[in-house]
Design a binder for these strands. Structure first.
Lengths: 120, 120
DNA sequence: CGGTTCCGTTAGTGTTAGCTTACCGTTCGT
DNA sequence: ACGAACGGTAAGCTAACACTAACGGAACCG
């Protein structure tokens, strides 16, 4: 279990995992519920849950024959912590740049090599 | 340009991209600098920068023959916004769960509004 | 007990995505 | 104008990964 925001970000890179994450944020769910709500098969959900669990973002609790999954607060906290760190660094960076007499952000006028930015 | 936290999360899923992102958070960098600091080739850095730029997380500015890349504040803000949304949902979820297992603290008998299959 | 539901795991497959090599345009120095 | 530094792009390969299908196990119910 990592429990650090850096690893957690890697886990949330997958869209399906993000969807599961957001669903679990609303309320705990069983695998079956998640399967009904998502456009993927049950084993796929199960695999994603395993990844999320190993990554320390969710925990599971047995309830009869089904397993209820829910978010682990520490995981979300770690994410926020990591992002806040980067955010602070960025703020000081912006401040130093502002001192360095850069009045505004120039949109790179000599960027004729790359002025077609529409690609998925 | 996406400029929404959801897409940005996908971009930061890659470790190399996270590394570039964190480096740019400290101070703006040229492609050459990033290449020297990272264990990947220069074209790889360039490709990642293109992805980050299309995703609205960074901007580039021409300076002589080199391009200086730096973070775009809106991108980081979008990330925080998305994460805060999930965080709020999770908080309410935790609260409801706490109420369900802690009698007498904050009883809310009208909690049948959400479909939580509770049977033992 | 047999049947059913729910779930984890494995094997197998197809697609995606990152990395490198090579090439070319642009800008600066001499 | 020539050559070097800087960097974006194309083609290709390889590895990772997300998904399905199939099997097996564990808990409820009749």
């Amino acid at each position: 279990m990592e429990t650090n925001g850096e690893g957690a970000l890697g886990l949330l890179g997958d869209p399906s995992r993000r969807a599961i994450f957001e669903l679990l944020a609303r309320h705990p769910c069983s695998v079956q519920e998640l399967t009904d709500l998502l456009p993927i098969s049950r084993p796929a959900v199960s695999q994603h849950l395993k990844v999320l669990k190993d990554g320390g973002l969710v925990v599971s609790r047995a309830e009869g024959t089904r397993r209820i999954y829910q978010l682990r607060p520490d995981g979300v906290t770690a994410l926020r912590t990591w992002l806040d760190g980067v955010w602070q660094d960025a703020l000081t960076g912006f401040q130093k740049q502002a001192e360095a007499s850069t009045p505004g952000l120039e949109p790179d006028p000599n960027d004729h090599l790359n002025d077609e930015p529409e690609e998925r």
